[in-house]
Design a protein around this nucleic acid. Structure first.
Lengths: 335, 335
DNA sequence: CTGAAAGCGCTAACAC
DNA sequence: GTGTTAGCGCTTTCAG
């Protein structure tokens, strides 16, 4: 690795002269600047990032903790985060908690030693279940800023980026009601997450608010990822007269659609299905699945912006929560 | 941030004493060690990673460049890389090239300044198309090791992790032949990638090697991601007598299956479909798609191991190429 | 047993 | 216009 020292020695000048020359300092003669920059270029000199970080107590690196990278939502969020971070001159160190609290704690601990300037994260499932977020608050107490996105917690006082989960489910349910559906069922693979609860509440509220809807809300939880097919199968067996399905997780909507087709439900005549996911996902279904779009790219982008804003702010400002709009996208599985 | 200096001042000892005490040095009295460690714990002291990196000229960080994080294969590879890296005490800085050569160059440049000890990457589509990998070789010339996985290049001399693309497609085709299929078509969304070529060649070779197969190989390229449905639609229109389909990319197999079902092909009686992807992916199709499994986790893990091995090796060793076995997983879309 | 000092690569205040 | 110096936080050799 080429250093200032190397350049200085080769040119018989001092290290600081080289440093200044490379920064086009007014103090240095045009001639020296020329020579220094020429050699630097020739030797492919690059300022050592680690040294600069140490000097500035600033790494220009963001720690990103993702619960489940195989979940399309989080993959897309990561995409957006990386893009915006890169645009603003930041690198991201990616940690995957795999929904485990232990891994989450570990990552926060390991990176809170000057490795990163701040964190962007979504809370692991296990953490949400145990309702214990001390490890996250511990980081905040060390004055390392955190932005939470999607899966947040009331117990943590920091910047947050969320969607209006309640409203999104409310709107989707409303739509099915407007279609004249009389037997709307909600399927949830994320019953254990706060966002799952909010969405479920939106669904329930919409049904309660409806004048002419007589059935009780029915919520079908999916215990485990590998039980989706089985659960959906049972749904149709137990509620053959279902005429509207809202899936509030990323995948079960697709399965619900497939099984329905197999059982010869006419879609959307007999049955409407609405999934929960970003645009473009699952567009390969036939008929194309109607979905509540999460605008995932906006979520990621907003998270980065919030974090960098806070990093640049010298004085403390109150944490803000940014709500990203959702959009009900009616494709072919709704009337 | 708590530093050695803070501890030293509080305890009225020197910085070096503190440092040694924290490392349980024999030189330091048990009593001092006690006091130092107690205070360190109390103040939640963590050695500054940046300073250590600078001191050691070693960051324990790997730069990972992923072409397309929304592609399930790469997401899973990242998962495996992160897991193994984390296990071995490394962080990963993730860069997403989004298949662009420019972004790839940028990432390599930006991180080759001491930010990372080495790279793990898969080559961007654009780079493969332009057949120019100077930017990658430039990094190697700076003695920064790189491990290429999946999408590699003969023009680069470094450690590589690949699968036997040719053999995998050959085997899958063989299987369809053994089913007695007479009209096997290959669908490729990755015609422009080397791996796509290798897989295609495997398919062609298997057909040529067959004694009693009379039809010519038929390769249906998919121009753009959003043309999958249309392309598949045309396939069935132009070749209604197709009785075997091999998809060599991650997604088109699913679409082929769906469209076939819609057209009332009996699967697998009339038509067998084999996709190309890892286990567990696309398991939600009904019938469940048979696939060539890539053992993506092994690919990621092997990449990390190769890189760290090289980082630990003081003297130069010849680059190796590791081939990860694939496995033909027969589920419900083959006889 | 403890401390002083040098150095990793860089920047910047301060001489000359 | 150029150089010296100190310091970011840490480790480590060498002195005491």
């Amino acid at each position: 690795m080429v250093t200032l020292k190397h350049l200085a020695e080769q040119l018989n000048v001092s290290i600081s002269t080289v440093s200044k020359a490379l920064h086009n300092s007014e103090e240095i003669s045009p001639d020296t600047i020329e020579r220094v920059q020429a050699l630097a270029k020739h030797l492919n000199y690059k300022p050592n990032k680690v040294a600069i970080s140490l000097k500035n107590s600033k790494t220009n690196t963001i720690g990103v903790i993702i619960p489940d990278i195989l979940n399309h939502f989080f993959a897309k969020a990561l995409l957006a985060i990386e893009k915006e971070a890169s645009k603003q001159g930041y690198n991201i160190i990616t940690c995957l908690s795999n929904e485990k609290k232990g891994k989450e704690i570990n990552s926060l601990q390991l990176l809170s030693n000057g490795s990163v300037d701040g964190f962007i994260m979504s809370i692991a499932e296990e953490t949400q279940l145990e309702k214990n977020v001390d490890h996250i608050n511990a980081i905040l107490r060390q004055k390392i800023p955190i932005v939470l996105f999607d899966r947040v917690s009331d117990q943590i006082e920091c910047d947050k980026v969320i969607i209006d989960d309640f409203g999104a489910a409310y709107e989707a349910t409303k739509h099915l009601l407007s279609e004249g559906r009389k037997h709307i069922i909600l399927v949830s693979g994320i019953d254990n997450l706060n966002v799952g609860q909010y969405r479920t509440n939106g669904y329930i509220k919409a049904l309660k608010d409806a004048n002419n809807y007589t059935n009780e809300p029915i919520i079908i939880p999916i215990e485990k990822e590998d039980k989706i097919a089985e659960t959906i199968q049972n749904l149709y067996k137990n509620y053959p007269s279902v005429d509207g399905i809202i899936s509030i997780d990323n995948t079960s909507g697709v399965v619900a659609l497939q099984k329905a087709l197999k059982l010869n439900y006419k879609i959307p005549e007999d049955l409407s299905v609405i999934g929960f996911s970003d645009d473009n996902v699952l567009e390969f279904t036939d008929p194309k699945l109607s979905t509540i779009s999460q605008h995932t790219l906006d979520i990621g982008k907003a998270s980065v912006k919030l974090l960098i804003e806070r990093l640049n702010n010298k004085e403390y400002v109150k944490p803000t929560t940014k709500t990203i709009k959702t959009k009900l996208i009616l494709r072919e599985t709704t009337k």
